[in-house]
């Protein structure tokens, strides 16, 4: 038991530092696209520590206090159910007890817990942000589940580590074996990471920065740290499912940075959809590709 606890602590530290590194590149890359210099690499860490160094924090009762805690707990729990590495005892967390469907649902537990705190704070903008997030989730979850179901029924298993094991050589990476599923999942990957066409949840211009409107000081610190770790969990999940997993941390970082670069490029290029436009887009193009893939698979059998 002690080993798994140490293992999960290691996982938390790894995702935090990896996340801060990636988002450091994100801010510098964004700045370079904007033709400006951009902040130092570790600016996100400095921002995070400054938020914790604030001398007071706004509160709306006990439920408001628990919101960020549930959010962070949801993130770390879903992180512990994702196997980081392929065939080493390290960084497996509790993934032997869980599977992919459990993980997809675990990723929703955190945000809904935080939604309670946003609701109790009473800021109308916050609740609008949460509702937009849940509506967008419909659009993102359906194509993603279809592509993942294609994967699972293809490899006959629903546990992530087995799917990862099945991709031993480059040719049968799921990216190659199930290209349609990979393309569909990329659409919802961009949405779930909150890249630009789909970043309707916390739009400062429209909904006064949505769910984080009322969080300040240490609460905002926890939310910011959690957001970075949550993105890393998704990145690692995609690497495990489609890019053949990683035998050691460096390959993991290389592959996840490639995916992160894709997310960063798409995010920088587009203005923002309205919520219903985002859901309609996701239920049109990606879903049709997914259904096509399913028909091809089952009719050709």
């Amino acid at each position: 038991m002690l080993f798994t606890i140490f293992n999960s602590l290691l996982a938390v530290l790894l995702t935090y530092s990896m996340g801060m590194l990636y988002y450091g590149f994100y801010r510098i890359g964004n700045a370079r696209i904007h033709r400006r210099v951009g902040p130092p690499l570790w600016q996100n860490v400095i921002d995070n520590i400054k938020l914790f160094a604030k001398r007071e924090a706004p509160g709306h009762g006990i439920m408001f206090h628990l919101g960020p805690v549930i959010m962070t707990a949801g993130t770390i729990t879903s992180m512990l159910f994702v196997p980081f590495l392929k065939d080493s005892a390290w960084l497996q967390g509790f993934s032997s007890y869980g599977n992919l469907i459990l993980l997809i649902y675990l990723m929703v537990v955190g945000p809904l817990g935080n939604a309670l705190a946003v609701g109790v704070s009473g800021v109308p903008f916050g609740v609008m942000g949460v509702t937009r997030g849940l509506t967008r989730l419909i659009g993102l979850e359906v194509p993603f589940f279809l592509s993942v179901a294609l994967l699972m029924s293809g490899s006959g298993t629903i546990s992530i580590s087995e799917i990862m094991m099945a991709q031993d050589s480059f040719s049968n990476w799921n990216m190659m074996a199930h290209p349609a599923a990979f393309i569909v999942s990329l659409f919802s990957f961009v949405g779930m990471m909150g890249a630009s066409p789909f970043d309707v949840v916390g739009a400062p211009v429209e909904v006064y920065s949505g769910p984080q409107a009322e969080f300040g000081g240490k609460y905002l610190g926890f939310l910011a740290a959690q957001r970075v770790m949550f993105s890393m969990v998704k990145l690692i999940l995609w690497v495990d499912l489609f890019l053949g997993g990683a035998t050691n941390v460096f390959i993991l970082m290389a592959k996840s940075f490639a995916l992160f670069f894709f997310y960063f490029i798409v995010g920088a290029a587009f203005p923002r959809f309205k919520t219903e436009q985002a859901v309609d887009f996701m239920l049109k193009l990606p879903l049709i590709i997914g259904i096509g893939a399913v028909l091809v698979r089952f009719w050709s059998l």
């Binding site: 962070t72 729990t77 007890y97 459990l102 629903i158």
Partner: peptide, 28 residues
Amino acid sequence: ASGSVSGFMVMNVFGGVFAVILILLSLF
């Protein structure tokens, strides 16, 4: 056939992580 899920483990992990973070937050 294709995989298993352990409810007991999920509840404990979530509860444990929740407690740890709650303590961390109240440290501030």
